[in-house]
Amino acid sequence: MMEFPGQLIYWIVVVMMMMGFYIVIAQGNFVKKIVGLNVFQVSVFLLYITMGKVNGGTAPILADGIEVFSNPLPHVLILTAIVVGVATTSLGLALVVRINEEYGTIEDDDILEQESDV
């Protein structure tokens, strides 16, 4: 079998992160931008979880006869981060709904046009 470089998984995560980043800056639709933020977020979570993995380890639940565990600390941090991420996502989506009520569109250059007309 081919030997993968040890950092390959980090590179995959970085590619995914950059896809999220690209969505956020290149797309004008606000829902799409929030989806991009989500993709970016999940990539960061994956980065943390990959760092916590130990070869031959199991989930960090203590049981008889198991000696090697993966690192529990990143898991805890990411648990908190996922929930906070959903809170911020819901806030962003509420803003999108409000913008749609005010301007009748959720495309940012339509909004810029309306603003420059005024």
Binding site: K53, T58, A59, F69, S70, H75, I82, V83
Partner: peptide
């Protein structure tokens, strides 16, 4: 990657 709790939450 052994993060079962995180998988539940996600």
């Amino acid at each position: 990657m052994d993060a079962v709790d995180v998988a539940f939450t996600e």
